[in-house]
């Protein structure tokens, strides 16, 4: 199909863009070092004495908070800075094909980074007898989480030609998405607000929906939540890009 061919072309260019610059390698090394450090040193992987990857996945919302915006911040701001946006959007493609293509390329890159953590799966299987179904659903949840943050970064990068502003805005929005359902914050909120209000606020949080995946529960509602965050943010990106040109 024509639309898919255009999306694939954009994806291919974007993905190779990561690997022709040092970004990809710096990111992969730092991501793997940090996941290792958090899992084994801070998460006490060995001392816990259980065959699970809880200490691995628990840190992902916080790790992604800084690393995913670093991947996504250039998506559109770079196009604006270089002026290639004008080139791209006067090609015979629709702007949503460009948006989806760019998003999928970065998501695929994050999936690759996540895939390279396979040694922890091997380690835990070597030392114990974990439930690999739970590990699988943990990975799915982690990927959905990364996709949601990435869609936020995609939106903020469309707002500005400055990558630093794009990064900071994105971190702030993602931080909100975490804190709205972070247990210490919800505990605090229950002192002021009724439980219903707290539940509504917490329902907007990625934490609430991420936890299910870590328990090995692939709940449709959680998948729908992440998918709608991604969909909404990409739609907003499209609106921003259109409005900028409308003057």
């Amino acid at each position: 199909m024509n639309a898919w061919a255009n999306i694939r072309t954009i994806m291919k260019r974007e993905l190779s863009g990561y690997f022709t610059s040092p970004i990809a390698y710096v990111f992969l090394v730092i991501f793997l070092l940090l996941t290792g450090f958090f899992t084994f040193t801070i998460g006490n992987f060995f001392e816990r004495g259980e065959a699970s990857l809880v200490s691995f996945f628990t840190w992902h919302p916080w790790l992604y908070l800084f690393l995913v915006p670093a991947v996504g911040m250039r998506l559109w701001s770079e196009e604006r800075r270089l002026g290639t946006m004008e080139l791209l959007l006067t090609m015979p493609i629709t702007s949503w094909q460009a948006i989806v293509g760019k998003f999928l390329a970065s998501w695929l890159f994050l999936a690759l980074a996540l895939g390279l953590t396979f040694p922890v799966v091997i380690t835990v299987n070597y030392f114990g007898d974990p439930d690999n179904g739970v590990i699988f659903s943990g990975y799915v949840g982690s990927l959905m989480l990364a996709g949601s943050y990435l869609a936020v970064s995609c939106m903020t990068s469309a707002l500005t030609r400055n990558q630093v502003i794009s990064f900071i805005l994105s971190v702030m929005i993602c931080l909100f998405l975490i804190l709205a359902g972070y247990t210490p914050v919800t505990d605090l909120l229950t002192r002021f607000a009724s439980p219903v209000v707290v539940d509504v606020i917490a329902a907007f949080s990625v934490m609430t929906h991420f936890e299910g995946f870590q328990r090995g529960v692939l709940d449709t509602r959680d998948v729908v939540f992440f998918a709608s965050v991604i969909g909404f943010m990409l739609f907003t990106t499209g609106v921003i890009i259109r409005n900028q040109r409308a003057g």
């Binding site: 061919a5 270089l82 015979p92």
Partner: peptide
């Protein structure tokens, strides 16, 4: 040809032209 002739800084000339050709179908 837009003003200031923009192009993707990290691509080679060959890669860039192939990319544009692909977008042109």
């Amino acid at each position: 040809l837009p003003e200031n002739a923009p192009g993707y800084a990290d691509m080679t000339v060959n890669g860039f032209l192939n990319f544009c050709a692909e977008l042109r179908g």
